[in-house]
Design a protein around this nucleic acid. Structure first.
Lengths: 221, 221
DNA sequence: TCAAAAGTGTTGGGGATACACCCATGT
DNA sequence: ACATGGGTGTATCCCCAACACTTTTGA
């Protein structure tokens, strides 16, 4: 039957370590590209939707669930793999605290390693291009939405949130202007808690995704 | 082999008739949804890329080639079709003059009819949602890029271009402000020609896609 | 009392909107 | 001459970047 071919689902998973944007890669154990690093993913099951497949492979790879998951692009050039494969690629955000906890726990999956997005090893297939495109989409979206909070724990200070923006966008931002910018959004709700450090305590905020107005995405899917 | 399933490529093709946004639909001849209208498309061939497949099915349906073609989304819910199908959907712009010429010529393909985007018949599968999402993307993109010129002939007046914006966005725009807005873009290049009507002649412009700075899309694909 | 981060206030420039106005042509 | 769309000029508003300034804590 024409039209039948293999469909893979992969995900560019972003998290933050300090000020660096990191993604997990999986070392391939088989040809083609045995030994090379590749995006986490797997074959699309006959009885699972695309979103489900992305969430499943993400959980398999990291043991975690994402605070943001969105389709990136479908790649299907004939020559992108020795054998024809269409890859539906997603991108995701993971809260950094969950990733850290996972690393400490012995439960971290084998064959998975985190890399700085700006210092990747050679990747299998066209995955280097895919990661670059995913990073572009992330930076772009951070500019006009509030998803950046998805990289932080439940509660965070505005300075912490600002440092996320600075890490993702790669430039410094004025603290006072950042405050006004971000406080305008009803999705950032102040809590009672304060973060106490060696200086003046800072109010903790929480991100309420319900109150955000991101683009709709496909109405069904 | 797991992961092997049927992949279709469909396209939401936009053109303009007067002030109305129109798309071509194809009447299905087989079950499921025999007799219903559906997006033009076809099975992805084993030896063709996604972009190629979209361009091919677009040409099969309309006999034309698009002035803009971009991937929209990959739809793959298990229940979107009685038998499992993953659809890679594109959206495209056709110059209205080419469509009109095609209509006059007897060469127009059978089983294809153009419909007003805001007055569609019942569609097969989840195609109604897909069209709505495509229209959203078009309206969105018209707001921050210059693709709207892709709906017009090679040369056009600013008033014609403005009426495209008004048709797509569904609201009136101030002629003088529109002029400044659009003349700021180096992609709109004035020609020597003038359109003469029953009033003061208007300068003709040309759209130079080379000079535009749209988002990159995936670097490879 | 000092360092450092939290948080507030003020100012100025650029882009978008609203709208008054002049220009060129066919009838 | 006049109606009609082509095209220019200008005032205003609003958002945002820059930056001076005050507040609150730990040491």
């Amino acid at each position: 039957m024409t039209g039948a071919l293999r469909v893979a689902v992969s995900t560019v998973i972003f998290s933050l370590r300090g000020e660096r944007l990191m993604i997990p890669l999986v070392r391939r154990t088989r040809d083609p590209f045995a030994g090379r690093w590749a995006l986490p993913g797997g074959w699309l099951g006959a009885e699972e939707g695309l979103d489900d497949a992305a969430a499943r492979t993400l959980a398999d790879t990291t043991g975690l669930s994402a605070s943001w998951l969105e389709q990136l692009y479908a790649f299907g050039d004939v020559d992108r793999s020795p054998d024809r494969v269409v890859s539906i690629v997603y991108w995701a955000l993971l809260r950094s605290d969950l990733v850290e906890a996972q690393r400490s726990a012995a439960g971290a999956p084998e064959n998975v390693e985190w890399f700085d997005v700006d210092a990747l090893p050679p990747l299998a297939f066209d995955h280097a291009d895919i990661v670059a495109y995913g990073a572009w989409r992330l930076r772009n979206k951070v500019g006009y939405s509030r998803i950046a909070a998805g990289l932080l724990p439940d509660e965070f200070t505005l300075t912490e949130l600002r440092s996320v923006y600075e890490a993702v966008l790669g430039r410094r931002m004025d603290p006072s202007n950042f405050r006004r910018l971000i406080e305008g959004s009803p999705a950032l709700v102040p809590t009672e808690g304060m973060r106490t450090g060696s200086h003046r305590p800072a109010r903790l905020y929480r991100y309420d995704a319900e109150l955000d107005s991101i683009d709709p995405g496909p109405l069904s899917s």
